[in-house]
Design a protein around this nucleic acid. Structure first.
Length: 486
RNA sequence: GCUCCCGUCGUCCAGAGGCCUAGGACUCAUGAUUUUCAUUCAUGCAACUCCGGUUCGAAUCCGGACGGGAGUACCA
């Protein structure tokens, strides 16, 4: 009775992976993992005019980047392949023939022009639009003859003219549509390709999908899908229609308003772990007050009944917070490669640096990092002496007599032969202040400025330890030369 | 136009008839910590769309209004 859960994400490779789509994929993934089931990826490329190979490539890359690895499907294979609809055409043809033979579907020879005129007429009359079923009762023999004679046609489903169709949505309960509301939808297009509806139903059945988690824009179509399942005599899967993700202003989330695709957020310096966490909490919650969760925790807590039916706004400020928190929580080793990447982009060559040192630096500066790009400003100076000094910092830290004070520091650093650690150096620097009757601010602030180029960064002593006393002394001298002249 | 879905702080998530003078988080404000910046901590601002009904009692159930969203393709 309880079949293993099988869910799928079935995108159309026509553009970038929108975060709304990513969230749909993510819920499918979470549900599969939570249930110990399978998550499949199927490519719905039945619209030849909109297909784009780059889109497909980006899609796969972005899904993997987010951590949504699929168990079956494109690039992975599996027992129900192929997983690309354009490679499954004969299946749909066969299914359509079967329906025609059963009398559940029929060929329609109406031209596009006639349908357009019909629609215009209906709209003008203020009536609901829809196919008028003119070809519905063409004699089967005649229909076949016309098809064999080469007359172009589409295949339509014979929707009952009376009664109503109800499907059950796990989130919203029963949703009923009067059949009179449904027109005879196209199953097979003139070019022999299936429509979404046809391909979707045939494939979901064929691939033994148990639960369909998809965007709620499909709600109006689901009654028709149900009719299709019935026409085939197949048991329909469970339906869960996910709410949409809105922009903060309430409309659709678009590139123009900042960012909308997974790739956009990756480029802006977000971690996949953070985006994953944030997206999961958009329309779902574990039931308690937890927000920062690992994937494992989310899998353990995930149930369908905790999904909210209401659409939610995408608040990037909160995403930023998730990112910042994720940066603090991730093991440093996971951050080091990204650190290398960011610094590399900022023109700092780290190829000669070993991971242990970078890990120390990452650890020291990560509390100041919100987006990955922040690593550049927060840490570049570890690897190259400042070439200029932040005017605001100079104004605050560089006073008359500062240079003279720094002479003491430079000398002390040059002659330092104690251990190269922050604590010892800190003690030494503070001792130096005390001995000369200087406040710590008079020494530490300008020293920081000399080392970092601005009043930023972790504890000064630890910076000296990381840089080494020799390099630190050199930077002090350089700062004196650059700033005392003014 | 017609059909459908949704409606708790600005935003996200709790709340499934009394535990709600509605809780947590982001943002913002104030304060503490910090030799810098950031972190961290504390405090504060801020919501049940409206109107009826059911009930001893409603954010929670029902109806309507209003608002937002979606569908209405030989696109998905």
């Amino acid at each position: 009775m309880t079949r293993p859960v099988r869910v799928r994400f079935a995108p159309s490779p026509t553009g970038y992976l929108h975060v709304g789509g990513a969230r749909t994929a993510l819920f499918n993934w979470l549900f599969a993992r939570a249930q110990g089931g399978q998550f499949l990826l199927r490519i719905e490329d039945t619209d030849q005019t909109r297909y784009s190979p780059e889109a497909l490539h980006d899609l796969l890359r972005d899904l993997k980047w987010l951590g949504l690895q699929w168990d079956e499907g494109e690039g992975v294979g599996g027992p129900h392949g192929p997983y690309t609809q354009s490679q499954r055409l004969p299946l749909y043809q066969k299914a359509a023939e079967e329906l025609i033979a059963k009398g559940a579907a029929y060929r329609c020879f109406c031209s596009a022009e006639r349908l357009e005129a019909l629609r215009a007429e209906q709209t003008a009359a203020g009536k609901p639009t829809g196919y008028d079923r003119r070809c519905r009762n063409i004699d089967p023999g005649e229909s076949l003859r016309r098809a064999q004679a080469g007359e172009p046609f589409v295949v339509r489903l014979k929707v009952p003219e009376e009664g109503e169709t109800t499907f059950h949505d796990l989130l919203r309960g029963d949703i009923t549509t009067p059949n009179a509301q449904l027109d005879d939808m196209v199953l097979l297009k003139r070019d022999g390709f299936p429509t979404y509806h046809m391909a979707n139903v045939v494939d979901d059945h064929d691939m033994e999908i148990t639960h369909i988690l998809r965007g709620d824009e499909w709600i109006p179509s689901t009654s028709r899908h149900l009719l299709l399942y019935r026409a085939f005599g197949w048991e329909p899967p469970q339906f869960v229609h996910l709410p949409v993700i809105l922009s903060p202003s309430g409309g659709k989330l678009s590139k123009r308003k900042g960012a909308a695709s997974v790739g956009d957020f990756r480029d802006k310096g977000y971690l996949p772990e953070a985006l994953f966490n944030f997206l999961a909490l958009l329309g779902w919650g574990p039931g308690d007050d937890r927000e920062l969760m690992t994937k494992e925790e989310m899998v353990a807590a995930f149930t369908l009944d905790r999904i909210s039916p209401k659409s939610s706004a995408f608040d990037e400020t909160k995403l930023e917070w998730f990112n910042e928190q994720t940066v603090q929580r991730l093991p440093v080793e996971a951050l080091v490669p990204r650190f290398r990447e960011v610094l590399g982009k900022a023109g700092v060559d780290l190829s000669g640096e070993d991971d242990a040192r970078l890990a120390r630096i990452v650890e020291a500066v990560r509390p100041r990092v919100r987006l990955l790009g922040d690593f550049a400003a927060q840490a570049a100076w570890y690897f190259r002496a400042p070439s200029e000094y932040d005017p605001k910092g100079v104004k605050r830290a560089w006073k008359e007599g500062t240079s003279a004070n720094l002479d003491l520091v430079a000398d002390a650093l040059s002659s330092w032969n104690g251990p190269m650690d922050g604590e010892a150096l800190g003690a030494m620097l503070h001792g130096l202040c005390e001995k000369n009757g200087l406040g710590p601010g008079q020494v530490m602030m300008p020293l920081r400025l000399a080392l970092c180029g601005a009043l930023i960064g972790p504890d000064v002593s630890s910076i000296v330890a990381e840089l080494g006393t020799e390099e630190s002394a050199r930077r002090v001298r350089a700062a004196q030369a650059a700033l005392s002249a003014e």
